[in-house]
Design a protein around this nucleic acid. Structure first.
Lengths: 239, 239
DNA sequence: GAAACCAGTGTTGTATGATAACCATGTAAG
DNA sequence: CTTACATGGTTATCATACAACACTGGTTTC
């Protein structure tokens, strides 16, 4: 197996950057529904890209329903419809800070889920967790099976909260995070790390079994912190 | 490979038509996962449009996760029908425990968002929060304006975390919660409650302004607890 | 005075050509 | 067999031009 060292995150397309930049303006409220966007010329100049790139970005935002545009008039921020679906743009995630944001969100949910799980876990939940952990022991580190069971463990923890939406959201976010990690390809592989990871999982499980919410929270926090550094995201995570 | 790609009829946006045309090829199986799309030149010629239009269409499909492209190689049909969307069934929410679960999830996000906001808020964030709070003072309790600004306040708090996904998720969840509350129609209305709510908001704002994460967390927790009882969900919330 | 008409200007939509960055492949040199 | 280089093809981006459409203001017409 050859090492892929210098697979530096080749930045996503310029249009993606422009799109998420405009999108941020809308989400954070600096551009309100009904507001008119700057002209394509101005946007191109502002971002320092060609008008073509701006158009690709706008085409995307238009397809997402965030803005609408009319020939001869301009582009406007759409009234945010009661979006009944939540989407995460895969490409936008290639940006480091976007990935970091999603990772942070995942962390919050995981940590609190662990705490809730410690309070509410049933006997069946514990059995499921132990079962997954055993399977994980048998799988080679970094293999598809290993990654799958890793995700499965976190799922059982979330399930132990008894909150179905917790499972749904957490799995959704985790899947996106996992995809992004796989895409970037900068995973470290080592048998030592396998032992570390398994140990962290065990600590979480113990805390949940003991019903110690605070300890479960801490254990999960440490685990995620460790996982972050394992995928080369160590330094930025700070408190 | 002989693909059946009809020439496009002049409609709203050419890029839209091209995108849906390619999309149809994928859905109907004439383009399978892993297949390479024709080059942009060929597509432009096939559809009778400029390469620019083709690129806008591809940009859309790429953001939707249907295809993926790499400079120097080409564009390919994505192998996963990526479940990149998350949905919440409105009807299922009518069940009390489902609603409660979603409320709990929202609570976790709100509380942690408040803590993060206290650490990271900028001057602009504070101004936005104060602005919203002032608007809320002027709105009659329970009115549409009131509910809107209430949501807006929480949004500005989320925005102050600097985490775009936090905003996206929280707003998504909050919208569903709000819908459900409106549907159930069991809101209590009283001017006294208005004062209470505003006071709670003020306390959150103060904590965030002071940069006190722990206090912000507590203030938000209390606020949500109060809000829960105001919509007849008081007793169940426990820690 | 008011309505219809009309030209001018600005914006988006589309077309076209060119250049840079990148990948895959073949071929010659070692 | 391996390495280096040359070559052609593709995407990514830039730049420019023109067409289609909307808005504005003045002019004409009734």
């Amino acid at each position: 197996m050859t090492l892929k060292l210098d697979k530096v995150n080749r930045g996503p397309h310029l249009s993606t950057l422009v799109a998420s930049s405009i999108s941020r303006e809308i989400v954070q409220g600096r551009l309100k529904p009904g507001d008119q966007l700057p002209t394509e010329q101005q946007l191109a100049q502002t971002f320092g890209v060609s008008r073509n790139v701006v158009r690709e970005a706008i085409a995307r935002l238009r397809s997402e329903g965030r803005i609408w545009s009319q020939q001869g008039r301009g582009a406007f921020v759409a009234d945010q419809p009661n979006a009944t679906v939540l989407t995460i743009d895969f490409e936008a995630l290639q940006q480091a800070n976007a990935f970091q944001s999603l990772f942070e969100l995942r962390g919050i949910l995981e940590v609190e889920a662990a705490a809730l799980a410690a309070k509410r876990r049933t006997r069946d939940d514990l059995l499921a967790m132990k079962d997954v952990l055993a399977t994980m022991h048998a799988a080679p580190y970094g293999s598809v099976m290993w990654l799958k069971t890793d995700l499965e463990f976190h799922k059982t923890v979330a399930a132990a909260t008894g909150n179905a939406y917790m499972v749904q959201f957490l799995m959704f976010v985790s899947e996106r995070v996992r995809e992004s990690i796989l895409a970037s390809g900068n995973q470290q592989r080592s048998e030592d790390l396998a032992v570390v990871t398994l140990g962290e999982h065990q600590r979480i499980l113990d805390a949940i079994e003991a019903g110690d919410g605070a300890e479960a929270r801490e254990a999960m926090r440490d685990h995620l912190h460790g996982a972050a550094s394992r995928v080369g995201l160590g330094a930025e995570q700070s408190e």
